[in-house]
Design a protein around this nucleic acid. Structure first.
Length: 317
DNA sequence: GCCGAGCGTGAAACATGAAG
DNA sequence: CTTCATGTTTCACGCTCGGC
């Protein structure tokens, strides 16, 4: 839940911004300035969370107004076609906790507007105007993100040249969905890509630990080969028969046996034996990309691929 | 499937104004 | 005067779309 006062007390020491004592805690600020700074920090945190959980591009988030945010039983953001990169427009779903945060954020902003109107002796608005921008701190998002990362002890650029920027939040969403087992089609839809290869090859960053985890999820192959384990052959899946290959034609096998049985827990449901369908987990296409994307997610955000591809080209030179 | 156009994006360099 | 934050411009590249 977003709550400015609860997130950071007003009497906390804020850092001096410039001069010889830059970085030291204890900046002498008025209560109003202090509250505004803390509130801006909270807003930026909500911006980062929104970017990661929606996959919105920076420019797309900049276009979102209060009227485009629906926080009813099916919370979502209605992205206008003119503001989306692909010019299609989209309904971007909001996770429940993000919807709660945005609801609280808008309530705080309404409180602020109403307080100002009250102090000015003006009529008190019952709601925020629908054309009010959702966020106010996006103007210098890139620089502020770098500052926030530095303050949090997270390197903006790692030793391999990968960088964290607003667009890397989008990479992070795709990668988290892949790691979470989301179907590629779902990830593609959430990323609003027209081509699933883009989602899988450019936006999904899987490290060695992720691919190893997938192997660990495979069923046991009857214990250790050093311990005199049982026969391996009955657990093997069969490849389809093709003309010119040895062995019986698979269509005849299918005719005589129906759905082929696969023992020892390997699922033989039709959805899992379709060799023509794409893998259910997005994979990285080439060995060079695997090498470059291994173990880069230590800080939580995925790097932007544009820098990654640029680095690839530099390495080839 | 390939290619080019158009648009979006961030990095880098430089300029400008304000604060210390 | 120096330092710093911010704005502007240029450049390279990513992504999508449409035509072939």
């Amino acid at each position: 839940m977003l709550n400015v006062a609860r997130t950071r007390p007003l009497d906390s020491k804020l850092a001096i911004n410039r001069g010889g004592r830059k970085g030291q805690a204890g900046a002498r600020l008025t209560d109003a300035t202090r509250a505004a700074l803390i509130r801006a920090g909270c807003e930026r945190a909500l911006v980062y969370k929104t970017l990661v959980l929606t996959g919105l591009r920076k420019s797309e988030l900049e276009s979102i107004t209060v009227g485009q945010v629906r926080l009813d039983d099916r919370p979502h953001i209605a992205l206008a076609a003119a503001d989306e990169k692909a010019r299609r427009g989209a309904l971007v779903p909001l996770r429940t906790d993000l919807a709660d945060d945005l609801r609280n954020w808008l309530a705080e902003r309404l409180d602020e507007v109403q307080s100002k109107a009250r102090l000015a002796g003006q009529s008190i608005p019952p709601a925020l105007p629908s054309d009010t921008l959702l966020f106010c701190v996006l103007l210098h998002l890139i620089r502020n993100l770098k500052k926030d990362l530095t303050a949090a002890g997270i390197p903006v650029r790692d030793d391999q040249g990968f960088v964290i920027d607003p667009h890397s939040m989008r990479h992070t969403l795709a990668t988290m969905l892949a790691k979470g087992g989301a179907a590629p089609r779902i990830t593609q839809e959430l990323m609003r890509h027209s081509d699933p290869r883009l989602t899988a090859n450019v936006y999904t960053h899987l490290g060695l630990s992720d691919t190893r985890s997938a192997l660990d999820s495979l069923p046991s192959l009857s214990g250790s080969v050093f311990a005199g384990a049982g026969p391996l052959a009955p657990q093997l899946a069969l490849t389809p028969y093709k003309r010119g290959q040895n062995g019986p034609p698979s269509d005849k096998l299918a005719e005589s046996e129906g759905v082929r049985p696969i023992p020892n827990g390997l699922d033989a449901k039709p959805g899992n034996v379709n060799e023509n369908s794409p893998p259910t987990t997005a994979v990285i296409s080439g060995p060079s990309q695997i090498k470059l994307t291994q173990e880069v997610a230590a800080v939580g955000f995925e790097p932007t691929t544009s820098r990654l591809l640029h680095l690839n080209k530099l390495l080839k030179k």
